[in-house]
Structures are given as structure tokens and as C-alpha cells.
Write a protein that binds this DNA or RNA. Structure first.
Lengths: 143, 143
DNA sequence: AATCGAAAATCAACTGAGTTGCAAGTATAA
DNA sequence: TTATACTTGCAACTCAGTTGATTTTCGATT
């Protein structure tokens, strides 16, 4: 994923200053096989360099508002983040009851039920989040 | 909704002791036109009687585990709760970007895409949450 | 290359939803 | 009516995330 995007150019295109922490955030999320929590990202950056948590939170927030990242609300209290580039369009997520791990699922064609999902006449929906829960294949093997 | 359920019998059937706070929680959620936050429920109970927040949190948690309530993760950090009786099956929710209000939508037949939503072979899904976001009809009128 | 102002990072202190452990109160079975 | 296991209340805590004030740094312009 990371190989497909030039992050310094990406930042320039969005009029965002190039800094080490910002590059690290994109780099880590670009290489991640799943959405990450802020605390995970923070810890991963800290293996490379010293950084304050406030910086990471502010960057995640800023990038989300700029549309560079997607913030996922999968469980209470913690947000997960994933890259929002064209190689990684919005898609459902699966979360295991036991190990809490998150898997990305293939996009599904919800357009078919778009009218039902609008709700009362006059609503204008612009985003649909689908979250599937259950036991993942690894946890089913164990138990 | 509340009229359709006898809450004291409901509690007895679940082997839960009948107390004023528990009845109040069910009563309030039964009469609510939408899912409520713990803090809202707490405040509504306090218009009738004195009660500690810990008690309300514990009851909400307990009832959720017993399947009496559903806990909805609609935005970060705060949970919403709704009655989980047979008159009120699982359904998608719509949340407005501006007023943050939550609307209940009609159930949609996601079974059609059940295979895609399972993810990797071996996963066993048992729950699908659909959250729609956008502008509600009231906020669109205003702006 | 040196300067400089706006943007970014840091620090400490704070917020607010939710949790924990323990003491005191109460529903209900016997 | 009584015993006791279940409930509630209280105070203090946790933890993700936020705020405001200060210092540092990027990068455009001399």
C-alpha cells in the first residue's frame, strides 16, 4: 500500500507541511494490514523517534478532516484509523468478539438499498459504515 | 413500546431482582423514540428519584449482557442504548453530522450479501451493525 | 546561507465517560 | 421474620482524548 503512494507529494498536494511525524503516521498506516488505534501508532512512531502523544492525536484529527485518513468507530472509547487513498476505498470491517482483532472486508453493494438507508424523506446520507461482529477463523480453531 | 412489555415480569423471567432503578431504566428506554446515552438515562431517572451514576452504568451493562438491551456504538466514547425486545428488532441507525441526533431506520435485508460479510473462510459472523451518516431533514431545512 | 513568521510540536494540566473496591442497604426465599 | 445474597452508593481511579500556553521548526524570502 505504502509503495503505491508518495507521501511527501501527498502532503504537498494537500498544502500540509512535511514533517517527520506526519510522514511516520502515513508510513505506518500505509504499511499496516489493518486499521490501527492512536496508541498503536504512537508506540510504533516511538520505536523510531521521540514524539508526544498530543502531536499524534492532532495529526490524526487533522488528516481525518482533510480526508487523508478515515476514522473508524468500531468499539467504544477507541478510534481506529486507516489510509483513505484511492487504493483503499471504504469497506466493511469484521471484529472478533474474542481477540478484538479487526479485519477489512470486501466492499459490498449497498446502493441497492440506498432508499431504505436514507430514512425519513429529506435526509441526505453521505456515508454508510458496516461493522460485522463474530468469531474470527483463528479464534474458532482454538475453541 | 413500553405499553407492549410488562417490565416487572420481564425482569422476573430473566431472574433479575425487581428494583426501582431497574424499572426506571426499562421504562425510560421503552418510552424513548430513539436510543439514549447513559448520561441521558441517568438524568431522566433523577427527575423522579435520587440515583448514583455507577448504579445506572452497572444496570445498563448487566442488561446488555442479558440481552435485554442493545448497546450501540454510534460515535466515539459514548454508548447509546435501546430496548432489545421482539417489538424492536436490530435495525440500522442514521446519525446527523450537525445535530448528532439518532434516528432508527427500517431493517434492511443484508442476508443477500451474507457470504461477503463473513470475510475469510472460517469466520462466523453473528451480528451486523449498519450506521448511516449524513444531514437529517431538520438540519437540511435550516441550512 | 541567514532570517523570520507562520505552522507544528511539546508540556502539563485538564475533561468526561466509564470502572473498581468496598461499605451500607434491601429484595426475596425460607 | 430473618438471613443473606444481591443491589446501591461513595470515593477514588482509569484511560482516551483535549486544551492552552510555550517553544521549536519548516520553508519561503531576503
Amino acid at each position: 500500500m505504502g509503495d503505491l503512494c508518495d507521501f511527501s507529494q501527498l502532503l504537498a498536494r494537500h498544502g500540509v507541511r512535511l514533517t517527520a511525524v506526519r510522514l511516520a503516521v502515513l508510513d505506518i498506516l500505509g504499511a499496516a494490514p489493518r486499521a490501527l488505534r492512536a496508541a498503536e501508532i504512537l508506540e510504533m512512531i516511538r520505536t523510531r523517534r521521540q514524539v508526544n502523544k498530543v502531536t499524534v492525536y492532532r495529526i490524526l484529527d487533522d488528516f481525518t478532516h482533510r480526508g487523508l485518513l478515515r476514522r473508524l468507530i468500531l468499539e467504544g472509547r477507541v478510534s481506529h484509523y486507516e489510509l483513505a487513498c484511492e487504493h483503499h476505498p471504504p469497506h466493511p470491517h469484521f471484529q472478533c468478539h474474542l481477540c478484538r482483532e479487526i479485519q477489512c472486508l470486501e466492499p459490498v453493494p449497498l446502493i441497492r438499498m440506498w432508499t431504505e438507508l436514507q430514512g425519513p424523506v429529506g435526509n441526505r446520507a453521505d456515508q454508510i459504515d458496516v461493522r460485522v461482529k463474530g468469531l474470527c477463523h483463528k479464534c474458532r480453531e482454538i475453541s
